[in-house]
Design a protein around this nucleic acid. Structure first.
Lengths: 214, 214, 214, 214
DNA sequence: ATATAACCGAGACGGTACGTCGGGTCTTGCA
DNA sequence: TGCAAGACCCGACGTACCGTCTCGGTTATAT
């Protein structure tokens, strides 16, 4: 199990790391994931191929890293800017009106998913994660799950406030809200709009069955 | 457009077509989608590479075709066998108990998705469709949408019977039911079980908000 | 040793045969021998590939046939025109002046070899014959040897007339005259000119050694 | 011109170069030129195809290189061995008896041409050079012309010694001697023997015309 | 202050697969 | 049955990238 020469990360060139991230994201955006190659990234970044292979195990890993870095930077900026993020990464607002809060957040999510700039690499990464379990786990753990936890938090708060039934499992509830958006985005079955986000919230909150009082 | 010599499909070898389908499915199952090559499919099928390139534009298209063929055959058999399918392709039962009917069908879906035999090619196809819009559209149109329509039908019947509120949009409702399963399957966030299917049905039908009468 | 279905040559389409010859010669002239393909010949001749494979064993054979046909036609025309040919195929003149007669014929040969129109296919055929003994034998027997025999005849006549030494072997003598031209043409060592033809005749007739009487 | 990335020849692998030469010569000898493929050479040499394409433009060029290398090595060995070569590459002997010297050398040439081991690749190269002017020029310049110059030297010496007429053009004379051998070898008209070499020398030296003193 | 060890750019290397071309065989439908 | 058409299996083409491997060259500690 010789680790086969672990490179010394203290001597790693930050300049190269950044250039590789940038080149990878740019190329995926321009020509798509499939036609993005390690050689192409290296050439574009002005970097030797070995420098990529030394630090990443695969093309997908490079891209993932680039994403995580971007996400981290954005989070840092958000935190720096102080305020609670909307569609971003920070926290779901709690105005007391659960429906309104969820619609706000899910509309922001819709906008984020519909953003042309990030769509290609995002899809590529998701697709790769679907096929490659290890990468998928990383994707979920680092990018998706933190977001989902925000919903858990918000829903628990709503339960505590009596706005959501106590026998609801927040994890299931959150998937009822999030999954339909993901579904439309990934599979492109129907357009992903604000109206749809609203409808999802309304249907999920209200349920399908006739209400006793109605 | 691109005339580029359309081959004469009346002279196409059915033997080869079938062999290619079989080889493609077998290889994807055995070594995974990424390591399945056109060359490998051709060799396994005992066929010239050109025969694949003559009739399909890509590896994904071959696989899609193989799936459609399989699905069509199963549908034909199901129709021949007469009965209403459960997890299959035919029809959602209507016993009058919507929750029970949905749980039955969704549990079957869970089993289908968890089937080790079809998982690899199914994931591969889905992933490819996520990145390639044309393929994705074909995937949705031919494999997914027909299934979804069954839910629309069943939900409308439930509405007519007063078991579902009239202001519910069946399309949205169905996505509330299906999307969470798809979500767990594609992203592998948490295990996809019968219990989860049941929970989804219960949460979706009942809604998150406290019921007036409760 | 079943001849594997000998085709019935009485039912052969003369139209196709000619079209194939023409297409073959045209293509070799236009794109060169190497880039001339059986498929290309068939397409150009408006003929099925099988029609070529039915009657010829190889691309070279088609070309050879085309040449023989052309040569035969020219010979027929020459014979019809009555006169003795010069550089052609018929007969070497005998004016009593051997040197002059040979120069006349060899100059005509030079012109023939330098003819741009026939050069490409001629070279191709020669080259193919150099590598493929069977084809080479055909080439020699049908195209070259008949020409060489004319020299034998003329040289014997010269011997009979006392213009050439009796101990000369006409076969060797003829090769002394012809081979240098062929050599320059095939290997492109130096330009192939009338002056060279004359020089070859002079050197061969006079020999290299000092003449006793000189 | 064609920038197209010139490879850095200082980093070229000598091991590969040699292996490719050897494989090429071996294959041409074993299966003939036409059935020798780049792919086959690469496989036999244990080399990637790209390594061949990186350094040579064509199969013929590989073979030519292999020949030149072999010839150069033999020349070096001959030079090292010190002595004057016979059929080889070094020098035509001058014993004062021109006829005998020429017969010696031409007989050696006959043996060389009849050598079964080198015949196939030699013919292939010659044939390729006949069709491809660039390759032919290389063939002539590097392999043929150096040999021919030896004859020029020897014939001039003979002229100086009064053994050959002063009005003889050594270049034409040499072709009178060499071309007939080449002719028989390339076109396989008649067997190429020592006796023929002798006859060519005798006919060329003595000439065809009756000698004054005879 | 200088060795000496790493990362780094560059790119040649042995490979695998690509998508295309053409070879030679076989089948179909027309004359 | 000959023929035009062209699908078929196959082998090779020349190219693109893979991941590994040298090669100098530049840093950047550790003597």
């Amino acid at each position: 199990m010789a680790p086969h020469k672990a490179p010394d990360s203290t001597r790693r060139s930050d300049r190269s790391r950044r250039a590789i991230h940038d080149a990878a994201l740019a190329l995926v955006g321009e020509v798509g994931y499939a036609r993005t190659t390690i050689e192409g990234i290296a050439a574009r970044a002005g970097v030797g191929k070995q420098t990529i292979y030394r630090w990443w195990p695969s093309k997908a890993a490079v891209l993932m890293d680039a994403f995580l870095e971007t996400a981290a930077r954005q989070a840092a900026e958000a935190a720096g800017a102080g305020g609670a993020e909307t569609g971003g990464t920070y926290e779901i607002p709690d105005t007391g009106d659960l429906a309104a809060d969820l619609k706000l957040v899910l509309r922001a999510t819709v906008d984020e998913l519909n953003d042309a700039a990030t769509e290609a690499p995002m899809r590529a990464l998701a697709a790769e994660g679907i096929v490659d379990p290890a990468l998928g786990a990383q994707f979920v753990e680092n990018l998706l799950e933190p977001q989902l936890q925000l919903y858990v938090t918000r829903l628990r708060a709503a339960q505590d406030a009596g706005q959501v039934r106590a026998d609801i499992d927040p994890r299931v509830a959150l998937e009822l809200l999030i999954a339909p958006l993901t579904h439309r985005w990934l599979l492109r079955t129907l357009p992903l709009t604000h109206a749809y986000a609203d409808a999802v919230v309304d249907h999920a909150l209200g349920g399908l069955l006739p209400r006793a009082g109605a």
